[in-house]
Design a protein around this nucleic acid. Structure first.
Lengths: 223, 223
DNA sequence: CAATAAATAGGACCAGTGACCTATTTTATT
DNA sequence: AATAAAATAGGTCACTGGTCCTATTTATTG
């Protein structure tokens, strides 16, 4: 659905049969990306995976860059959608909601899709402006949930400090991907690592002050 | 030095002029990787960057995989070397040493070399066994420093818990790379983020218990 | 049903790319 | 100086990849 909406470039179609095709194409591309990285993403393989010819693929995506961008859009949208879901559910206390989100994200890191796709995204973002933009948009959404809860858990924080804390929490969890993600050396200890993260983040979020964030780097106890 | 030592495959040389050449080749490869990712790393560009012909490059590296592996070895060795330096310096209290290391690592994340190279490494490690092995070896070294200090700061932790905490701390800092690294949206706020990390990690490391890591995920205060 | 648009396949083209080979020059060794 | 080894350039080759073109088939619509 979203993919077809995004496909509004001239010369491309977005109708009946085309909708399924675009979906199949993007799914094929995503599978290739997960299986072998962007390095492994060729139009011929994408076409083969989608069960169509290269010529036909070219009918939907006149160049590789367009396909890549639509792929990024599609995958990122799916994660944004997940975050929106998390934002609604919850229910309990802010603390419990916060911990629930931490657990949700670290659990998601354990899937092959996330473990393999995101490092590709981070690498792409270093050299592709569009990838960088989409990635930024995704994580802004991801941090929105955290920001909301941190504001409740620690009302004294300025907006700037709060966003810095949210960034730290979010980035920290993302950082677990190459270490405790799918098939990684620490994958089996993800439950314990999740506990460490939940405990650490919760204390940090509730106890940190604007002064210590700005301040001259002295430890909390020393001032 | 290290690069030439590693270059012991049959058919290749490691002598007088060859030493400089290998260095130049690897530097050229590293620059290309940083500038455009693995995607941008071609033998012709490497040769051009090193100021030699493709045929000559082939004399030193009979195939691209060997070159990539030597490149990974070289870069990773340089980081290992840095960690060893950090391990020696220090001097102050364990708390100060710990904070110093956190600052050192997050500062390093701000360099273009680190910001661009590591996401490539993480992506490569998803599909290349050798890259995964070398990456693992690197981070074991990086965590060794943290492990050592955590053992002092929190002697009650079991070895397993301590290593999990060290992994969390290390991975968290790495996770900042795509967000607060060189040229990234939060790069300007790296000092504040560093403070947040230092404060959060130090409290976590000194106060966490084996039970809360293993335990049923209850927050510290509730037990 | 005719006509128009959408969808598809097949292939051609051309710019790389990695790998390889050979001849030549430079450097080291005796 | 003579010889062997190392270092280097240049070219070739098979192949892959992105892009483009054309003809054909399949829907859609008036």
């Amino acid at each position: 659905m979203c993919a077809v909406q995004l496909q509004v470039r001239p010369g491309t179609a977005a109708f009946s049969k085309g909708q399924e095709r675009v979906l199949k194409i993007l799914q094929s591309a995503q599978e290739l990306m997960i299986a072998g990285g962007y390095h492994n993403l060729t139009l011929r393989k994408v076409a083969a995976g989608a069960g169509i010819s290269v010529g036909n693929l070219n009918y939907y995506y006149s160049n590789k860059q367009d396909l890549l961008r639509d792929l990024l859009d599609k995958v990122i949208e799916s994660y944004v959608w997940e975050f929106d879901q998390v934002l609604q559910s919850a229910g309990e206390s802010p603390e419990d909601q916060f911990v629930a989100i931490v657990k949700f994200i670290i659990e998601d890191i354990g899937t092959q899709e996330t473990t393999h796709f995101f490092p590709e995204l981070w690498a792409l973002a270093n050299h592709d402006e569009y990838a960088a933009d989409r990635m930024d948009a995704l994580y802004i959404k991801a941090r929105a949930v955290l920001n909301h809860l941190i504001a409740i858990l620690n009302p004294a924080l300025t907006e700037s400090s709060r966003e810095q804390v949210a960034l730290f929490v979010s980035a920290s969890m993302e950082g677990l991907t190459p270490f405790a993600g799918f098939g990684k050396p620490w994958a089996t200890q993800r439950p314990e690592i999740t506990n460490i993260a939940a405990i650490g983040f919760l204390h940090l979020v509730t106890s940190i002050t604007n002064e210590s964030i700005q301040g001259g780097l002295s430890t909390p106890k020393s001032r």
